[in-house]
Each structure stands twice: as C-alpha cells, then as structure tokens.
Amino acid sequence: MSEEVSEPIEVLRLPVELEYQYTAGKSASRFLRGLQQGKLLGQRCPVDGRVYFPTRGCCPQHGVPMAEEGSIELPDVGTLVTYSIVRVPSANIPLELPYVTIQVLLDGADTVMMHVLGECELEDVHMGMRLEAKWKPEEEWETSVGNILYFVPLDEPDAPYESYKEHI
C-alpha cells in the first residue's frame, strides 16, 4: 500500500479547451472582404506610401493607422523572395511533407506574404522565381487567404536579386 502511494506520478494529462472569438479588425476586414471577391487588396502607408500586403492595422514603422483610402488592388503574381523546404510535421498544418514554405513579394507590394509553393519539383525551387497564385474554385471563396491554395511557378525569367533583396 505505502509503496503504491509513494509511486511518483510523472504525467497528468489535462486537456484544456478554450474558445475564442477573434475580431479581424478594420484593416484586416477590408483585406478579407477583398479576398472573398478574389481581390488582393494592399494598403498604402499614409507616411511613406509603401504598400503593405497583407495589410495590418497600422504601419508598424510609423505607428499610424492604415486608412481605407490607401487601399490598392494588386495582381496575383509575384516573386519568390526566400523559402524553406519543410520536412517536419506540425499538428496545425494539414499539408503533406515535404512542402515548400515561401515568402512571396506580389508585384506592386512592398512587403512579403507567407504562403506555400505547389506544382514545382523540390530541386527546381529557387530565390527570384516568378510565381502566380493558384485559386480555389470561385464558389468556395471565403474571407480567408486560404482562397489561394498555393503559388505555382510562372514561365518567366527570374527577377534579379537586386529587385527583391531588401525584403529578406
């Protein structure tokens, strides 16, 4: 009896489930409503005019709100700035391993967005590749970046390193 009582308990499993209701916020709402209609809406910083995509509530460099007037529609093509080939599973990521996580600079944007690359052999992935968004079927569009399934290579010459190096 005493031996059983003194047996150490090493692990207690305690599942915690909490529900949160997030508010996208004013700026992100415009961005997400745009996505719902298949539009990629960037936002100009009111101070230096640089285009943020995805948008943020304010310009982090200047601490000023991103106003609605600064909205600007961007094309769904851009340049692969940097990437990593991921071979580590993560419970929250449904993608099959290995997959390529990328930072893509849309044409006309001044910030990169994180996404994934598809329809590309691993050995062909490289910095400077030109990319195009692969969208879900229109009837499945919702208020999510997930409307873009992934980016695919474009048959175009690479962007020169100089054109995107400040975004790494």
């Binding site: 997400l32 940097t82 991921v86 993560s90 929250n92 990521i93």
Partner: peptide
C-alpha cells in the same frame, strides 16, 4: 503554430520561421 481564423498556417514552429532567413 496556433491556427488563427482567416489565415493559413504554413510556418511550422520556429524552424519554419527562421529557415528562410538563414537562406537569405
């Protein structure tokens, strides 16, 4: 890597975040 609404989780932990910077 908590999945937030409206977003797509593509970055697996800290390694997924820092690897592209290392490449840079």
């Amino acid at each position: 890597t908590i999945s937030m609404p409206f977003s797509v989780a593509t970055v697996a932990g800290a390694g997924g975040y820092f690897a592209p910077l290392v490449r840079g």
